[in-house]
């Protein structure tokens, strides 16, 4: 297998090449160890942090921004979104509060406070 990919860890956006089979993978083109790890993860089990919003029901036109506290499997993104969309919250909310617990091994947490 040979796969070209662009690193999304930082804005540098290194063009990397992954070659090999199974777990025996060689990464070239990366300029840091994080990039190498990303390339291997991307070829074996791609992960993404999901960010979205949850409605605050007791405030007019107010959303609280949220994120998965850790990356989730890429193919689970829409499942995570379904769980987020089914959620509402009442203010006050503190940044860091768990709004949806236990989502693919992590939690969905608030990224801002609403008084």
């Amino acid at each position: 297998m040979k796969r070209n990919l662009i690193c999304i860890i930082c804005p540098r956006g290194c063009a990397m090449t992954v070659e090999g089979e199974g777990t025996d993978l060689t990464v070239t083109g990366n300029t840091c160890p994080k990039g190498k790890q990303y390339a291997i993860d991307e070829c074996t089990h791609p992960m993404r942090t999901v960010t979205s919003t949850v409605r605050v029901t007791n405030r007019p036109d107010t959303m609280v921004s949220v994120k998965t506290a850790a990356p989730v499997p890429k193919d689970a993104i829409f499942e995570v979104m379904k769980r987020i969309r089914a959620t509402t919250v009442k203010a006050p909310v503190k940044a860091g509060a768990v709004l949806v617990a236990d989502v693919f091994g992590t939690d969905v947490i608030a990224t801002k406070s609403v008084e």
């Binding site: 804005p11 960010t51 994120k67 940044a95």
Partner: peptide
């Protein structure tokens, strides 16, 4: 930053990956 709810902020400056509202905080 208040409306930039996506992540990727702060990697260079703060050494961690934050969303816009978190970076502003």
């Amino acid at each position: 930053l208040k409306q930039c709810i996506h992540n990727g902020f702060g990697l260079h400056k703060l050494g961690r990956e934050l969303t816009g509202p978190e970076y502003a905080d």
